[in-house]
Amino acid sequence: APIIIKFSHVVANETPKGQAANYFKKLAEERTKGRVKIEVYPNSQLFKDKEEMEALQMGSVQMLAPSLAKFAPLGLKEFELFDLPFIFDDYTELHKVTQGPIGAKLLKRLETKGLIGLAYWDNGFKVMSANKPLKKPEDMRGQKMRIQSSKVLDSQMRSVGAIPQVLAFSEVYQALQTGVVDGTENPPSNLYTQKMHEVQKYVTMTNHGYLGYAVLVNKKFWMGLPADIRAALESSMKDATNYANSVAKKDNDEAMAGVKKSGKSQIINLSAQEKAAWRKAMDKTHKENAARIGADVLKEVYTATGYKP
């Protein structure tokens, strides 16, 4: 009988992560010549956001691709650096970290929790949306902004006087439509596929924060695999990662084009100067969270990317 790897994730098959997971399945099954069978469970069918990490540690599932914001609850607060606003200016700076020694070092820390990190998969850079034009950081004051549960995102919103509100992803559309929250932050592909642009008047191209995932496996399971299979899976993961990142980038570009074409919300582009004002206003977040995240690792990232408030 083939070795079965249950790969569970919480998004739809059509999303970049969903596509990448299916692409990995295809490569891995080909390259192991059927000795491994990968069962992909999308849409939180098997495990929800809140339980998948523990399920992986327990061995109820073998592979996951959780968002990087989910690592702090495991006790690995250093991963919160990925949530910091404006820490990466663009994909080049980002990949210096995720595909370089710092990223590898961070993944290594997972082993203390019984997990192994195989790769980082991009989702993209976030834009701000609301029903009033958010041109300056001062425009955020008093705005109720939906975030996903994360201490850093919470403090990022507070740094500009906004009121962060944690809401389940499935509730966001309705909350935006009725005005329970005024706005939110998302990579364009999420904004567009969830139709949030239909219920938001303005989208500001802040590109202020990064959203990404890491592919994880259960350590005991992984170490127990025959070496040749592990090698085949690793090479499949490498190709799937390139695929994931290119699909994510393409999806985000297409999504922004879709938002523009729909005419349902107005797109606000920021000049370099305006962006600098946002960066400056949100820099507080870095200071407030430096102790949590770890000053050493932050310094390494700053050196790699040249971050300056």
Partner: peptide, 18 residues
């Protein structure tokens, strides 16, 4: 409306909640 079931369907199939 509102309906939690419809929102879940919309998310699962990528259709418009509105």
């Amino acid at each position: 409306p509102p309906s939690i079931v419809m929102v879940i369907y919309a998310v699962a199939t990528n259709s418009s909640v509105g």
